[in-house]
Structures are given as structure tokens and as C-alpha cells.
Nucleic acid binder design. Sequence first.
DNA 1: TTTTTTTTGTATCAATCACTACATAAATCC
DNA 2: GGATTTATGTAGTGATTGATACAAAAAAAA
Lengths: 198, 198
Amino acid sequence: MIDTKKITARGRPRSFDRDKALATAQRLFHQKGYDALSVADLTAAIGINPPSFYAAFGSKAALYAEALWLYEANEGLDVATALAPEIPLGQGVAAIFKQAADAYASGDARGCMVIEGARGTVDPEAGAVARSRMEASRSFIRDKIAARDLPQAEILADYIMMALAGLSSSAKNGLPTQRLRTLAAMAADGVTQHIEEA
Amino acid sequence: MIDTKKITARGRPRSFDRDKALATAQRLFHQKGYDALSVADLTAAIGINPPSFYAAFGSKAALYAEALWLYEANEGLDVATALAPEIPLGQGVAAIFKQAADAYASGDARGCMVIEGARGTVDPEAGAVARSRMEASRSFIRDKIAARDLPQAEILADYIMMALAGLSSSAKNGLPTQRLRTLAAMAADGVTQHIEEA
DNA sequence: TTTTTTTTGTATCAATCACTACATAAATCC
DNA sequence: GGATTTATGTAGTGATTGATACAAAAAAAA
């Protein structure tokens, strides 16, 4: 495979910062959702015209996919640390829920961008992308639990995803951080109880 | 031709059954969501033309409000019975969650029409209607709990709404009934634990 | 300079959205 | 019967959607 990385750019240089535009798009997608945010909104926020938009990002859905990836990299929950083998599972799950409570209620874009995008998005392509990322998260969590030789990895992963969806929903409904944290602690009790019973 | 509701109707009689059309609309709104369902879809499904649609229902948003009301009347959870004073609270909440697990995974329209509508709807008017109904449900639940002289009525109501949102989300993601029931039972544990701690 | 390559701004495109103007059809009231 | 009232079908409204055609502009390469 030949390196296709351009060392020197040919042609007219881009007049805007692509990474900055992507960050702007990610924030707006998170705030308003895919369907409620038009390409006209995006180009206006970035400060470019439609042809520049499509030349740089391909399509609205492709930009959304990039934005989701950026969101997961920057604001995603640290599941790997929370579910590390040396930490008791109940404690790890509680840590995840607490992280979620803090993250989902912070800033102007409330809720989880992936979870909300997977559910509410009308556009089929964008919805499929978000659902794919959500399923990837579920698989990651399930594998982390299964590594403990626990037979309930599947249902526990389902429960965690359910609780995160509930927390995201409550956050979007405007619940303050402190109240979300209480809900997170209560939801974590459902896990500890289920492990003890087994 | 078909329908003569009022025997003493004045002008040309309506050629379709309004109640049947409303039921059709309710099912479609629940299946596809408000934004993904166009007026053209609705008129095609009912078998009428746009003028008849608007003469009968006023607007798409007004029909959605009627559909939400019909949904709550026909498929709403029986919270009043579950949270009756003579039933232990933990048991009542578990009953609500089990009801939700069964209802949200049944048929072709998965999830709760109110919860999903309150969150994902882009249209401001329709979203506000759904959110209003959801807030009414929360208040009803809170009052039922507060009637037991429990100081945690607010947070418990928040927790129930959070769990219902999570169950609705998981149901829309395709989880089968049996798995949803297990999640419902786990979520109910979070309540019993919280009551015992107080 | 001349050529080549890429981005830019202007000005759209066709499709879809919720919604209606209008004339006709079908009923009751006088 | 004629007048009145309501619903219907045809056809189309303006607005908005995501995405483009086109030619000028701006850079490197020849």
C-alpha cells in the first residue's frame, strides 16, 4: 500500500479549520439531534457554504458518523477502567452510572449523544450509525463482565444499557446532577442484588 | 356511505369512520413516531384525502394529541391499582415495571408511546404535548407515593420514570419480553433497597 | 507564464413537508 | 322543489429539506 498522505497540498487551500468545524458539528448534533439540525444550520454555524460542506464531509450522515466517533473519544464513559478485573463488579457498575449521571447533566448538550441518536433519529442512515455504536458499547461491556466468568454477562449488559438509557432520558428531561446521582446509585443496587442472588 | 354517527346531521355525511381512523393513526404514530409519519402516510392508511383529514382532525399535531389520549386510555399502565395503599410499595413498583415489560414488548409498536414521543419528537408542538402527558404521569405516581407519607416521593417518582424510560428504550431495541421482565425485576430492587435504607 | 488541481460563492435543483383553495357532491331544512 | 350545510376529490400552495451545476478564485506544478 502506497502512502497517500499529502505532504504538500495542491489546489486552492481550504478556508476553514476542518477539525474545528467537526467539533462544532458534534456539539450541535448532540444539542439538537440529527433530524432537528439542518445542513443550513451547520453551514451557518461553521461559516461556510454548502459546496464547501459537502466537499469536506461528504454528506450530513457522514459528518454525523464522524461526530459520533469524536464524541465517544472525548466524552465517552471510561468503562474499561470501571470494569477492570480487580474492582468488584457492583462497585464498577456504580462507578459507570455515577460517571453517566455527571456527564449526561453537564453543559448545554444533555443526555448521551449515542443513546439519544440511536433511538430518536428518523433518518435511517444516521439512526443505523448510532445504533451500531450503541451495540458496540454493549458488546464491550458484556465482554468485560464475561471475562469474570460470570454467567449473567448478557443480562447484566442489558441492564446497564437500560439504566444508561434511563439516565440519559432523565437528564434530557432536566433533572439536576445531584438527583441524577441518586438515581444512578439506586440503579446500581439492582445489579449488586442480582449478583448476590446468583 | 358508511358512517352516520349523528342521526340528525346536516350536510354531506362523512365517508369514513372517524374513531377507526383515530385508532389507525394512534397505531401508526406509536409505530413510527410523530416526525417519521407524514400526513400523506396517514391519509393513505385511512383511505381519505387531505381535506377530509384536516376537516376531521384539525391538524397533524391535534390528531397526535388525540392519539396520545387514546393510547393512555387503552394501553396505559394501571398505576392506580399497583400503587394502592394496601399494597407494599416495593411490590407495587415491581408490578408497574412488570406491566411495562409486557406492554412495551408486545405487538408491532414497541416501547411507550408517551415516553418515546416526549423524547424523540422534533416537532415542537407534538413534543410539548407528549412531554405534558409524561409530566402528568409522573405527578400521578408521585402523589400516589406521597399519600403513604413517604418523604422520598419525588426521587422515587423520578426513579420510576427513569426505569420506565430505560425499559421503553430496551424494548425498542428489540429485547424479548422475558429478558425485559428480568430487567424490570432488577430495576425494582433499586426501589426496595432505597426504601429499606430510609 | 501556463497548466493543473482543488475550493470557493452564487444560484439553484428535485423531493418532501404540512396544509388549502375551489368547485362539486350529498345530505337536511324550509 | 329550492336553499343551506357539510364533506369530498382535484390540484396546488409556499416553505424547507439534503444535495449540486457551474464558473471564478487560489494554490502548486509544469
